[in-house]
Each structure stands twice: as structure tokens, then as C-alpha cells.
Simulated scan of single mutants.
Amino acid sequence: MTFENDEEKIFDFKPYLTKGIFQELKEPEAFYAVKTSLGSITWLSGQDFSPETLYLEGK
């Protein structure tokens, strides 16, 4: 991802795919249905990550 400060980071989603509502994203078609919204990312079933989480946990 590229952030407003032009810093690029990669966020590892794998650790989240075993938790709660994120388990639905194990299916590729569900995972790739991601959308951007208000500086973050969301999925059809309501999963989302805050921009702060994506930035702080990204590498």
C-alpha cells in the first residue's frame, strides 16, 4: 500500500484469517472483493482495517 506520506508498506493478512469474521476472507473471491473506503480497506461482509493498523503493522 502507498500512504499519504508516499511511504509504501506491505500488510500481512494471514494472521487475521483464522479470527472471527475474517475467516470468510480465506476464500479468494471474498478476499479479492476488497474496496477502499475513507482511507482504509473494507470487504462486503463488513470486515475492515483502520488506516492506523495498516500503517503501524505494515512492513
Rank of each mutant, 00 (worst) to 15 (best):
S40P: 04
K14H: 10
E7M: 13
T36L: 06
I10N: 09
N5H: 11
M1D: 13
F11P: 03
L54S: 09
L54K: 03
L17D: 00
I10K: 13
Y16L: 04
K9W: 00
E27S: 02
N5M: 04
K59T: 03
F31A: 11
P15N: 05
E4I: 08
D48N: 09
L54N: 06
L44S: 15
T42K: 14
G39T: 01
M1G: 12
D48G: 06
L17F: 03
Y55G: 06
M1I: 15
L25V: 00
N5G: 05
Y32N: 14
F13K: 00
L44E: 15
K9F: 00
E8N: 08
E24A: 07
L54W: 05
K26L: 07
S50Q: 08
I21C: 10
N5E: 08
L56F: 09
Q47W: 12
K35Y: 11
D12E: 12
L54R: 11
Q47F: 05
E27H: 03
S40H: 05
I41M: 04
E29A: 07
E8Q: 11
E4G: 08
K35T: 10
Q47E: 15
G39Q: 06
G20R: 01
T2N: 13
F11G: 02
F3G: 05
Q23P: 01
L17Q: 00
G39A: 06
T36C: 12
T18I: 08
L56R: 13
E24M: 07
T42Y: 10
F31Y: 14
